[in-house]
Amino acid sequence: MRPLQVPEEEYLRRGHVGCAGCGAVIAMRFALKALGPDTVVVIPACCWGVIAGAYPQSSLDVPILHAAFATAGATASGVRAALDMRGEPDTTVMAWAGDGGTFDIGLQSLSGAVERDEDILYVCYDNEAYMNTGVQRSSSTPYGTRTTTTPREGWKRTRKKNIMETLAAHRIAYAATASIAYPEDMIRKFRKARDLKGHARFLHVFASCPTGWGVPSELTVKLARLAVRTNVFPLYEVENGVSYTLNTEGDLPVRAYLSPQGRFRHLSPEDIQDIQRMVDEDWRLLRAKAQGPPQRARLMA
């Protein structure tokens, strides 16, 4: 086995108040390792609004601007303008929002920022529900999920919104998915996005949530890997909204990903078949858009 190559630099402080095994924390840790110290982070309401530290503490070694729920795209645009005025155009402005702040509440401000092609990097760390307020469903919550607002037999029967396609439809310069289970791939994409200066860029990061998903905390990374290996969360990149590159192809049935999770425990074999069909359909659509076959059959971690 070749050891993973991850930069040594650390911008995440110990003692943050994220849950044990939080995938979103691992995501931030890798993101800042990739981007480096010349970064300003804009955080709307989300788990990270808490994890970043209660005043007067901060858990990051880079500046953070907390923003209102709906305003990550707009606030990041403003910070960009301010930095440019101060003569600091090289500083990366990263909006760091959860799926609620991206798929639902902040969608208009994200859409506006991307349409204006603001020089910002917008990251959605996706844990597929409003987690820090008590696991309420979002439009990112996948089909079949139980949350506190889709409880018992009322489990969610609509599909997860395809945010990547939304962004691709904006003809955004660069959009990519990334997973905490594949740090090298994730860091490469963050650096590629950082270096694509002058344009709006979007990264969709899969960040498993043991607390909200009903899984043991030690499975955080394993689940993120299974999401990729079952094509539930394919790793791919889109340039200018039209040029698709698939990074990998799954090799396992969705059951392998669903069965360890409490939020899917109620699903019958038929329900799981339905989900398999949806995943297969999404994968076919994605394959059809990609120029070539997946770069690799399977990514090694």
Binding site: L4, V6, E10, L12, R13, R14, G15, H16, G18, C19, A20, G21, C22, G23, V25, I26, R29, I180, P183, P210, P216, S217, E218, T220, V221
Partner: peptide, 27 residues
């Protein structure tokens, strides 16, 4: 060390877990 959400694994000769911060997630 790479996957620890708490930055609670230290490199040296061997690897050391910083129990002041480790939340025991088990990753």
């Amino acid at each position: 060390r790479i996957f620890c959400p708490e930055v609670a694994v230290e490199a040296g000769s061997g690897r050391r877990i910083l129990l002041d911060y480790c939340k025991g997630c088990g990753i």
